[in-house]
């Protein structure tokens, strides 16, 4: 997910990875890839069926403290911001060509207006 000011400047970025994570189950606490290495699941952050995962992000909007008549005033650098969230499925674990290496499941965009 990202948050950008009206002029497109990114001021927040965060991501979460949902996936089962496997080791070789041979005594080393080291995640591995490839079916011929994976044995068991060490940790599982994937989305579980019929369950809701709730994520909370605190997005602080950029501001500047300016003097106004001898008094410090806090001003937002951008009164309008855009928040964008995308949920991607990456079968190979790495980003690449859309529709081949990565598939968009869901997208949310909202404009935030501070008064």
């Amino acid at each position: 997910m990202t948050a950008r000011t009206k002029d497109g400047k990114e001021f927040f970025r965060a991501s979460k990875i949902y996936m089962p994570q496997s080791t070789e189950s041979r005594g080393e606490a080291k995640m591995v890839y490839a079916p011929f290495r994976k044995v068991g699941i060490f940790r599982d952050t994937s989305l579980q069926p019929n369950q809701t995962k709730i994520e909370t992000f605190e997005i602080f909007h950029p501001f500047a403290d300016v003097q106004n008549g001898g008094k410090k005033v806090r001003e937002l650098l951008s009164k309008e911001s855009t928040i964008e969230i995308e949920l991607w499925y990456l079968p190979g674990g790495v980003k690449g060509q859309v529709g081949k290496d990565q598939f968009l499941f869901n997208r949310f965009v909202q404009t935030i207006n501070f008064k």
Partner: peptide
């Protein structure tokens, strides 16, 4: 802004 995202898996198995 406090962003709360609720992801519900409607499939019959874990994703991915």
């Amino acid at each position: 802004t406090v962003l709360t995202v609720k992801l519900t898996n409607r499939a019959g198995h874990r994703i991915p």
